[in-house]
Each structure stands twice: as C-alpha cells, then as structure tokens.
Design a protein around this nucleic acid. Structure first.
Lengths: 246, 246
DNA sequence: ATATCGATCATTGTATACGCTTTTCGGCCC
DNA sequence: GGGCCGAAAAGCGTATACAATGATCGATAT
C-alpha cells in the first residue's frame, strides 16, 4: 500500500485554497496527524529527520497554522522534538529515555495483566489473534513497517482491554516511543517482539491466568530491551580532551 | 471574579503590543501556561469555567495565537476540554475518569516506592519535609489553594526521585487531574491527603523501607479516593423515562 | 589558500484579518 | 401570555502577512 493516504485532491477542489472554507476541519487535521504519526512509528520518517512547516503545509494542502498545531501535539507526545528557531525534527531518543520508557512499560503493562486476564472477551481474543498472525506474516514477508505498526498496536490494544483509558493511553504513547527507540538502537533483522511471543501471551490470557501472563510480559519486555544495542554515543559535545590526550 | 495574578505591567512596557516584538517569547508563554495551570489546580478556576480566547489574550497581553497554543497543551493534559466551535473550558472529570486516575496512581506511585526508597537523598528528605510542613500549615490556616498545590507538588516531587522522567511526568499529570477530581467530588473541609500521612511516608523512606512505604502509599491513595463523594450525576441526557415512570 | 566577517536567504514566531457557526435577543404569531 | 422564528452579535477556525533570527554562502584580508 502506498502511503498517499492524505487526499491531495481535496485541496484542489476549492479552486486554490479559498480562505475560510471551513467544514471538515477537525477530521482532516486528525487524519494528517495520523499520517505523520504513522510515518514516524513505521520508520518511514527516521529519527533526526527534519519536518519543515512549509513543506508539510504544501504536502497536505493546509496552511502552516494547522501544521504547527499538529507538530505541537506530536512534540508533547515526544515523537518530534521542537527546537526553538530551528523547527521540528523526529525525536532521537537518548539511552536514558530508552531505559525510562522500558522501565515504565515493565511496570504498567505487567501491572495491567491481571485485570486484562479478568476482563478479556472472546471478541478481544479474536482481534488479538488476528493482529498477532498478521504481524508474523508481515515479518516473514519482510514488511518491516507493517510488522512494527502491528506490534505496537497489539500492545496498545491489550492495554485498552483493562478498561482504564488513562493507563491505556499512557501505554499507547510508550509503544510509540518504543518504536522510535527501536529505530535508533534496534538491530536490523531482529526487531522488537518475537512473533510467537504474542501468541503465547494470548494463550495465558485465554486461560485466565493473569499471573503467568504478567510474568511472561515481563520477560517479553526485558527481552526486547536486552536486544537493543545501546552504545552510549555522545554525539553532542564530545570530550575532545579525553579523545586526544591519549 | 477577576483574577489579576498575572503581571499586567510587563505588557504595557512595549507601548501597546507592537507586532513582531520577539525575544522573550518562550519564557513568557511558559509563564502564562503556568499561570493558567496553577489557577486550575488551585481551584481558582473551577471545573466548567469557560476560557474565552479573546479574554485570555487581552488579560495576558498576547494574541489569540499564543493563547490557542497554550490551551491545546492544557487540553492534551486534560486540564481543559476543547469543544469544537464552543471553545475551551476547565475539564469536569467524570466518575469513570476519576476511578481511572486513582487506579493509575495506585499502580504507578506504589510501584515507584521501592526505587525511591533506594535513591532518596538527604537533600530530598529536607525538601519533602519542608513541603509537608508547609502543607500542614496552609491547611491549618485555611489556605485551601496553597494546601492543594503543595499536596500535588509533594507527590510529584516524590515521583521525580525515582529518576524515571517518563513516569515522573505521568505522575505529575495524574496529580493535576486529581486536583480537578477533588474540586468536583471532594467534600469541603476534608480535602485530599491527611497532612500527617506525608510525614509518616517520609519516615518510612528515610528508613529505607520501600515495602512499607509502598503499602502506606497504597492506603493513602485509597483513603483519598474513598473520601470522595462520587454521586454519579448524569447531568447530560438524563433518562427521563426512568425518572417519570415510577 | 584558508579563515573570518558580512550579507543574503531560508525558516520559524507572532499578530491580524476574515469567514463560518453558534448563541442570544427581540419581534411576531398563535 | 408564551413559544417560535429570524437577525444580529459574539466567538472560534483558518489563512496570510510581516518581522526576527539562525544558517549558508561569498568575498576579502592575512
């Protein structure tokens, strides 16, 4: 699927962006937000990539005002970094941030498991299995972007079963950031979740065994974190003295 | 009802808002954000209060553009609610949201306790004791706003000791929202944390007893939640049939 | 030839202008 | 007298214009 999901035809329909043409504003903005967010999560926009307001405005056929709003939202979710007077760029997570994110996931996603095991329905199980299967398939056929997206969606969907919207939202953000972390510190070929892991987890949940699911999720997340190659590359302000004093 | 806590003298300094006068922009925006955020957390702006962009723009001496940016940030933190075409108002949390927020606090704040007990320093203890004492004093002298603010600050500061910026940030948001919840469901006179609770908690942490601190925090939060009077007032779309069919 | 300084250019920050929607108030009809 | 409809006003959504700042490239001097 090509990623031209933003409808470029819509802007030409009004004869050149007549101002004041209101109406489907909120929906369009949400769609643009999703487009950019997806592109980042799927690594089609890589960490460090600059996001110029003019360019985005032209691409999506709205003015810079709307783009800025979307960029600010993405910045609050820490998917993009807003540098004063320099503009927006895709966030390049530090090693510390990566550790924080995975520690947070460990605490929250594991803590949620018992409640999820209690509340999970047959419908949920069907949806989760479908996602897990599609993820495995994507992984096998080399569609990395799709696999990454499905993996994040799996964890997010799981959290939403808990019924706690606040925590589910938090997990969703953490998964988005994890995707960025994988882009920077992940080894090619071994990206994130082992596919059968998710299937195993579904099994524990179907059996209503929250404690095993919790323990398994813990190992699962620790395995992902362990698979990262966190070379503490201090790109900015290298210690020249130490480098040249040997 | 006019709150003049903002510095109005600063805006008159440039002779009437000359456009393009740049320079201290970011700092000023942050200050305005803090002003509004504080007013909400301290219950000086009550849930449901409308926040008109024009009025705020005039009050703070910047244009609506900047105000909108700040309002959107507050909306993402769920302190204000943005209704399309209707503008912004202070969020009135639902009973469900209140439950979610306290469940989240229970999980995260308790889960953080062992690590906090491990990392807490003498300096932290001094700061925490100071806050707890000031909170008790404010409570005694009837300064509700100050007490609420200090209570939220206490929990936030505590979380930051864990060293996990992501989770600390999450706790900060949860505390802000808790303040809103107290404004809607709290009983007057018995607001939030019992003051000596915080002192007891500090004691456990100083002793390095993370497990007792965790258990105590659990009771503490449950006590706050239990003190709420959550009458499930379904203001919007009341079920008239049920009401009049008896 | 290279380094530094200056000018132009590219890009963001902020304000303002204008259209559209919603609300409210007044008049009219029932 | 009360309710409904219409018009005016108020307030939000979006685009555009302008200014300031940081970056880049070129010229000049050493």
């Amino acid at each position: 699927m090509n990623q031209r999901q933003f409808v470029a035809g819509d802007k030409s329909g009004d004869g050149g962006g007549r101002p004041g043409k209101n109406g489907d504003g909120p929906k369009r903005h949400e769609a643009i937000y999703q487009s950019i967010s997806d592109a980042i999560i799927e690594h089609r926009l890589k960490p460090g990539a600059r996001l110029r307001e003019d360019a985005l405005a032209e691409v999506f056929g709205i003015s810079r005002t709307g783009i800025r709003k979307i960029l600010q939202r993405l910045a609050l979710e820490q998917l993009v970094t807003l540098t004063p007077r320099r503009g927006a760029s895709v966030t390049r997570p530090t090693a510390d941030e990566a550790k924080d994110v995975f520690d947070a996931r460990l605490m929250v996603e594991c803590g949620l498991m018992p409640e999820i095991a209690r509340r999970i329905t047959a419908e949920d199980l069907v949806a989760l299995r479908d996602m897990a299967q599609r993820e495995r398939q994507a992984l096998k056929s080399g569609e990395q972007s799709t696999a990454i997206r499905l993996s994040a969606d799996f964890h997010t969907r799981l959290a939403s079963i808990s019924g706690n919207a606040t925590l589910a939202d938090f997990v969703e953000r953490l998964c988005s950031r994890s995707s960025l972390i994988l882009a920077v510190y992940g080894n090619a070929g071994h990206l994130g979740c082992e596919s059968h892991d998710h299937d195993d987890l579904i099994g524990y949940l179907e059996a209503g065994n929250g404690e095993r699911a919790e323990a398994f999720m813990g190992r699962h997340l620790k395995a992902i974190e362990a698979s990262l190659s966190i070379h503490v590359e201090e790109d900015e302000a290298p210690d020249l003295f130490e480098i040249f004093s040997g």
